[in-house]
Design a protein around this nucleic acid. Structure first.
Lengths: 261, 261
DNA sequence: CGCTGTTTTGAGCGTCCTCAAGAGTAGTGG
DNA sequence: CCACTACTCTTGAGGACGCTCAAAACAGCG
């Protein structure tokens, strides 16, 4: 069902701003958390500069993933976590009978692969929605280092817990909200995360299709499209294909918090 | 909206079988993982007898929770994880506007409170659905001990990861399945977990109301009730209030795996 | 410019929700 | 012991929201 992706221009880089690092290559590359702009959003939160330098052995490799390619697949052996450095991903689970559910979208600084720890095998697919690069974090080394660094250990636990809390939020969305509320919640979440990365909170270029949004939100693509159109008519959004501008933030916020009315 | 719970008889003890421990009291009580029947399902999986004895300091307290009472509430400070010893719990998140979503049901050997690690505060309510007892696992001590015991560390990470995988499965259910499929998946999951604890796989006494099932499955209580009746008519289940007997296991399994047809 | 994949929009339909009434069950107190 | 209350569960009728099917517009690419 998933169609082959076309390459598309990327008018507004969605992920991280240009940083003071050398160009990435396909080869393993020395990466320093200490000099990474994302360290305040990523795994090393809380570590001081000295401790950070000791992480260099942990996050030693980078990997690039072309738009449409898999970072890992359901069933593959789990070896490492991945921190998104640049780009954008989706993760999705598939049921025996071939149904697909997007379980999340990941942007710079976010971790991929946590599901794999449970059984040493990945339980979902991770697909790049644009050309991306990730830091490879070998899991055994992470466990080892987190026995040494209390702060790292705690931060890692926090990240896993945060994922659980996020998932529960999605369950609330899927179980209780109507289409408009779901889309509003989705857009608010997206803009907030982008804002935390230094981007505009009112202007977004979506990296995913209507179908992928729909899969994440438990809706069909037509419903997503119709709801976008409705928001446009009401003056809440300006929608030009994947270029979304929030015109009435309060209206969006009202939809998710007063939704019971 | 939540009504005050009535006390109800518990014809079939739902949780753990009788075990060789002294009667529980409200007082802190010396608990030994090494002599606990649940150790193969709980946190200490993989630890040998010698290591187990060193956990005694960790899991030193027990707590009882009456039916209908909270083990913890959304917003409360997070101090400890809880391992269900006997009884049955639900966890639910609530949105700003008062909506409620049951995020899970927990039985003997399962851990409660993982959501709290993310921000040092709980993000959901945990409510006992029958008189229950839990082991209290102070979180700071768990972190400390898991720096010492590799196996404990790994097992703890596995448990968190398993929760993430479970949540993704629920997202698939909520996003893709129809009412019958959801209820079938729910019942199969419940009976499997009961079976792992030595109970019948075909006979279940539900500890939760139709409304709570509905909240978990993203359905209204009337729909849950109607679906139970439908299964009864079709000879798939025998439904007598909360006493459910599975008559046609294959039919249930077919619903969740061939659901795309 | 044709091809492919994405998005929009319309019409009709189905699943599940809402509203409502009544039956069943448990617990309480006279 | 039985009425009385509170809660849960069942069942029906009607309606709404989102889905299905379908066609056409749009955008990017070879």
């Amino acid at each position: 069902m998933q169609a082959k992706r076309q390459t598309m221009p990327t008018p507004t880089p969605f992920a991280a701003p240009a940083r003071n690092c050398p160009d990435m290559t396909l080869e393993p590359l020395k990466v320093a958390c200490a000099s990474c702009n994302l360290r305040e959003l990523c795994l090393p939160v809380g570590l001081n500069v000295h401790d950070l330098s000791r992480l260099d052995g942990l996050v030693a490799k980078r990997r690039t993933v072309q738009r449409g390619d898999h970072l890992f697949r359901n069933g593959e052996r789990f070896e490492a976590l991945y921190a998104v450095r640049t780009g954008f991903f989706k993760t999705c689970v598939n049921s025996e009978d071939g149904r697909d559910q997007v379980t999340g979208f990941q942007m710079a600084g976010e971790l991929l692969g946590l599901d794999g720890i449970s059984s040493d095998h990945h339980h979902c697919d991770a697909v790049a929605l644009e050309d991306s690069s990730v830091c490879v974090i070998p899991y055994s080394q992470l466990e080892e280092l987190s026995r040494e660094f209390t702060v790292l250990q705690h931060q890692f636990h926090k990240i896993m817990s945060r994922e659980i809390v996020r998932d529960h939020g999605v369950m609330l969305l899927l179980g209780n909200m109507r289409a408009e509320e779901r889309l509003a919640a989705f857009l608010l979440n997206l803009t907030q995360r982008l804002q935390a990365r230094g981007f505009s909170a009112s202007s977004v270029v979506l990296r995913m299709t209507r179908e992928e949004i729909g899969s994440y939100l438990g809706l069909k693509l037509e419903t997503v499209s119709r709801t976008f159109s409705k928001f446009q008519e009401e003056g809440v959004l300006d929608v030009k294909q994947r270029q979304i501008t929030v015109l009435d933030l309060q209206a969006l916020q009202g939809l998710v918090s007063n939704a019971a009315c």
